[in-house]
């Protein structure tokens, strides 16, 4: 099993490709999701076309298109850059849809309530919509992050020295194929486990396990009503009550 150290040694490369691609995808997905939900139809259509192109064509095809195809235009990105670009852009299409589904899951009535209260659309998004969309977005993001880690294996086909490349090399040099590929597979699985756990933690609502009873809660503050405003409508107007209390 001395070959195992060779596979383990390149784990950081696989993780680097995965992490940078995921961050690139998550960032590019923000304007893509925004465009997909735009009120302007042409913008919406453009975003939909972008998403469908990158979701509909296999990642391997895009990998070859970017690595070999760009040479036609005089560009010769390295294997690592091509891998990150391909996985990053493909991720942006998937993650944009994850964002969109999360945001769409928040009922329109929630936005209406914020509008009626005079909150700006930006505050409405930050304070009301995103916190409610977060668990759904993180659930989708977690699944995709795991999928993406496994997709990094494809980059071995353009010569990136990552786990599958090393495993292949070892088998070509006479190591037992079944053992090497099985163990490599187990390493991918073990790498996925903490990702799934971390995403579950991030997506958990801070109130998810909050009990119902007031006794078990720490109040945000302990305000008390002044006696004259205990029932502000009895004999006085709301504004009078308010002014007397402030």
């Amino acid at each position: 099993m001395i070959w195992l150290t060779d596979v383990l040694a390149v784990i950081p490369i696989s993780l680097f490709i995965w992490a940078v691609s995921l961050v690139l995808g998550a960032v590019v997905a923000v304007p893509t999701a925004g465009a997909r939900m735009s009120q302007l139809r042409p913008v919406r259509i453009l975003a939909a076309v972008y998403i469908e192109i990158f979701r509909g064509i296999p990642t391997l095809v895009w990998l070859f298109v970017i690595f070999f195809g760009l040479r036609t235009f005089g560009l010769s990105p390295t294997a690592l850059v091509s891998a990150i670009l391909t996985l990053g852009i493909a991720s942006s299409a998937y993650i944009a849809e994850t964002y969109r589904s999360g945001l769409s899951s928040v009922p329109i009535q929630q936005r209406e309530a914020t509008t009626a209260l005079g909150l700006s659309p930006r505050l409405s998004l930050i304070k009301i919509v995103l916190p409610q969309a977060k668990p759904i977005i993180f659930a989708g993001l977690g699944s995709y992050a795991i999928h993406l880690l496994k997709e990094t294996a494809l980059t071995s086909l353009i010569g990136v020295v990552e786990m599958m490349t090393v495993a292949n090399y070892l088998v070509e040099r006479g190591a037992n194929g079944l053992t090497v590929f099985f163990v490599t597979g187990v390493i991918y699985m073990l790498l996925c486990l903490p990702i799934a756990g971390a995403v579950r933690l991030l997506g958990r609502s801070r109130r998810q396990n909050r009990p119902a009873g007031p006794d078990s809660l720490t109040p945000l503050s302990t305000p008390t009503a002044p006696p004259e405003c205990a029932a502000p409508w009895h004999g006085m107007r709301w504004h009078e009550c308010n002014s007397s209390s402030t």
Binding site: S221, T224, W233, N242, S245
Partner: peptide, 15 residues
């Protein structure tokens, strides 16, 4: 201010 708002909210919830 947050404290002022919470105080007003508590009044109204009492009401």
């Amino acid at each position: 201010r947050r404290a002022e708002a919470d105080e007003r909210s508590a009044q109204l919830l009492d009401s």
